[in-house]
């Protein structure tokens, strides 16, 4: 890697006053993100607890109600999200290697995949809403016999909804990264925001990895 005086100068302007060096700042930011990931896990954890408690009470409800979810599109969405995780990892790799173009391309693909995910989610939601499978007291569908069917779908909507909110925030972050990357902010010595957003995005992926079998694949 060429270390011209220009990059040398650039290398330092990101170090904030209270850090000794770039390394300390990077490590701090990353640890901060991991701590934040802990809070995210516990936050989704609350919903998983609701899921597990109701499943332990009404296993038959889950069997019956999950037939309304389309496992095929769930699977497609899983592929989409895993793919986006892969491109985010590639984006970080590009940043580490100072390949700013590669970074931007990979971010574009990620944003595209994230949109695909949301679009598929939108069709899934609207199909259900059309049938009257709406959250909460707006639930009017009568194709399911179980008297607590509304609760399964409340949990479904809460889990996938909160996940969807996270995906949307992720899209926003990626766009912000693209803007910054185009301004040539990132380089091999400073790609902290990319790394951190990447961690966030992988977390979103991991949550979906659990949501998919738990909601769609109950046979």
């Amino acid at each position: 890697m060429s270390s011209t005086s220009a990059t040398e100068e650039k290398r330092l302007d990101h170090v904030q006053h209270h850090f000794v060096d770039s390394e300390q700042q990077f490590e701090s930011a990353k640890m901060g993100m991991w701590v934040f990931i802990v809070t995210e896990i516990l936050m989704f954890g609350g919903l998983f607890v609701a899921y597990i408690v109701y499943r332990s009470w009404y296993p038959e409800l889950y069997l019956e109600a999950s037939t309304q979810l389309n496992a095929f599109w769930g699977m497609v969405n899983t592929f989409v999200l895993i793919g986006s995780s892969l491109t985010v990892a590639m984006a970080i790799r590009s940043a580490q290697l100072n390949q700013i173009k590669g970074l931007i391309y990979n971010l574009y693909i990620t944003i595209g995949l994230a949109f695909t995910f949301m679009v598929i989610k939108y069709f899934e939601y609207s199909e259900k809403l059309g049938k009257g499978i709406a959250p909460g007291e707006y639930y009017t569908y009568d194709g399911l016999e179980h008297e607590k069917a509304n609760i399964f779908f409340s949990i479904y909507y809460m889990m996938t909804g909160l996940h969807g909110v996270h995906v949307t925030i992720g899209i926003g972050l990626m766009i912000w990264l693209v803007v910054k990357a185009k301004k040539n902010v990132f380089h091999s010595e400073y790609y902290t925001p990319v790394e951190i957003t990447g961690l966030y995005w992988h977390l979103v992926d991991i949550i979906w990895i659990f949501l998919f079998p738990l909601l769609y694949l109950i046979d």
Binding site: K30, M31, W34, V35, I37, V38, I41, L42, G45
Partner: peptide, 8 residues
């Protein structure tokens, strides 16, 4: 960081 993850 691993410890944090495991703790969560």
């Amino acid at each position: 960081n691993s410890l944090l993850f495991i703790f969560s």
